[in-house]
Lab assay of single mutants.
Amino acid sequence: TVKFKYKGEEKQVDISKIKKVWRVGKMISFTYDEGGGKTGRGAVSEKDAPKELLQ
């Protein structure tokens, strides 16, 4: 599970739902399947990112 803040809201998403991951400076950005055909997005700092996300 990845915990992150998006627009001031605390969120979390299961690693299995993450589609795409990329690095922006010291942040790790990602998109994930929100269900219902929607794609969500989020970002975590490199130090807070789970190891599975960095692979």
Rank of each mutant, 00 (worst) to 15 (best):
R23L: 06
S29C: 13
V21K: 03
S45K: 12
K11A: 04
G40H: 06
M27I: 13
D33I: 08
R41Y: 15
T1E: 07
K20S: 12
A49K: 01
T31G: 02
V2C: 03
K20T: 11
Y6T: 07
T39L: 15
W22D: 02
L53C: 03
G35S: 05
Q55H: 12
M27A: 05
T39E: 11
I28R: 00
T1A: 11
G8Y: 03
G25Q: 04
Y6L: 07
G8W: 03
Q55R: 12
Q55V: 13
E9M: 12
K51E: 13
E10P: 08
E52K: 08
E10W: 15
R23I: 10
Q55Y: 10
K51H: 12
D33V: 07
V24M: 09
Y32L: 01
Q12K: 08
K38L: 10
D14N: 11
K7Q: 09
I28Y: 06
V13Q: 01
F4V: 03
M27T: 09
W22M: 05
K26S: 14
I28G: 00
Q12F: 12
T1K: 12
K20G: 07
K19Q: 12
G25R: 05
D14A: 13
G35K: 05
R23P: 03
V2T: 02
G36L: 08
G42E: 01
K7E: 08
Y32C: 01
E34H: 05
G40Q: 08
L54K: 08
G36I: 07
V44N: 00
G36C: 06
F30K: 00
G40P: 02
S45V: 09
E9Y: 11
E52D: 09
K5H: 12
E46G: 06
F30W: 01
I15A: 04
S16Y: 08
K47F: 11
P50R: 03
G8E: 04
G42T: 02
T31F: 09
V13A: 04
S45Y: 14
K7W: 08
F30C: 00
A43E: 14
S45L: 15
G35P: 09
E34Y: 07
S16H: 11
L53P: 00
V2E: 00
I15M: 12
G42S: 03
S45G: 07
E10D: 14
Y6N: 06
G35A: 07
K26V: 12
I28S: 00
E10T: 11
G40Y: 06
G42R: 01
K20N: 10
V21L: 06
A49Q: 02
A49N: 01
E52H: 13
I28H: 01
Y6F: 12
L54Q: 07
G25N: 07
L54S: 06
K19Y: 13
E10Y: 14
G36A: 11
K11I: 14
K11L: 11
T1D: 05
L53H: 01
D48W: 11
I15Y: 06
A43C: 13
T31Y: 10
F4I: 05
R41D: 03
K11R: 14
F30R: 00
W22T: 06
T1M: 15
S45P: 14
S16C: 07
K17P: 00
E34V: 11
K19S: 06
K26W: 07
L53G: 01
K20L: 11
E10I: 10
K47D: 13
K19T: 14
V21S: 06
S45H: 15
Y32M: 01
K19L: 15
K47M: 15
D48V: 09
K26R: 10
E10H: 12
A43N: 11
G8F: 04
K19F: 14
I15S: 03
I28W: 04
G37C: 04
G42N: 02
A43W: 15
V21I: 11
K5W: 15
G37I: 03
Y6H: 10
T31E: 09
E9W: 06
D48A: 10
K19W: 10
E9K: 14
E46N: 07
S16G: 10
